[in-house]
Amino acid sequence: MDSRTFRNAMGTFATGITIITTEIDGEVSGMTANAFMSVSLDPKLVLISIDKKAKMLEKIQKTKKYGISILSSDQLQESMNFAGQIKEKIDVDFDRVGDMPVLKGALLNLSCNLADIHEAGDHILFIGEVMEMKINEGDPLLYFGGKYRNLVMNESLAH
């Protein structure tokens, strides 16, 4: 199978959207990612997967810490911005959780210290220990079939 077919097949798994952030010398860098998962409750660990060609890779390797913001349904523009899909620069409202910059208004903000790194094909897996978090109310921004989506609750399934 070719890479495009595999990518399309993996797109049948609906995911939330995250913005991964870190800071070097007062300059915040970020990227959009949907490769995120919880790994462990004790210790509290999460995993992100970053392409070896991504600019964020060396920044996280250098800082050894990062923020994760799980986006709400009204943060489509932020997702597109950090994915490089918007050419003009937009103003981004950052907050801080612990010592990490995170997106204001996200459903969840995490501050992580790098716990482990694993090479996996053309990506690097970063396992982070969650140091602090902030939870907000709202609905998630989703990604499915190569498109952004919003959550619609079907009442017949909500039992």
Rank of each mutant, 00 (worst) to 15 (best):
Y148K: 13
D74H: 12
A83Y: 06
K59V: 04
S29P: 14
L41E: 04
K53T: 12
N81G: 00
A83I: 09
L108D: 09
N113K: 15
L125S: 00
A33M: 09
I50C: 08
N154M: 13
L114K: 14
S72D: 11
E27D: 13
S38E: 08
K62Y: 13
P43S: 06
I48M: 13
I50L: 07
Q77S: 02
L103I: 14
D25R: 12
S3R: 14
G145C: 04
T15R: 01
L76E: 15
I24E: 08
G84H: 07
I19Y: 01
L114I: 03
R7K: 15
E27V: 13
K59I: 10
S72V: 00
P101D: 09
S29T: 09
I70C: 08
I70V: 15
T15G: 04
N113H: 13
A83D: 05
I124L: 12
M10G: 02
F36I: 05
E27W: 07
S29C: 11
V28K: 10
D99R: 09
I20P: 15
G128T: 05
V28D: 05
A54N: 14
G146K: 13
I86R: 02
S73G: 11
V46F: 14
L41A: 11
I17R: 04
A33P: 08
K87A: 02
L114R: 11
M153Q: 05
Q77T: 04
G128I: 07
R96S: 07
G26D: 03
E58N: 12
G11H: 05
L151V: 02
T21P: 01
G121S: 00
I17F: 03
N136H: 15
L110C: 04
G84I: 06
L103Y: 01
K64C: 10
G30V: 01
R7S: 14
D2L: 14
A54F: 12
L47E: 00
R4V: 11
G98L: 09
Q61G: 12
S49A: 14
I24Q: 11
V46C: 01
I86N: 01
V152L: 06
A115R: 01
I135L: 11
Y148C: 05
A9D: 03
L41F: 06
D122H: 08
E119F: 01
V102A: 03
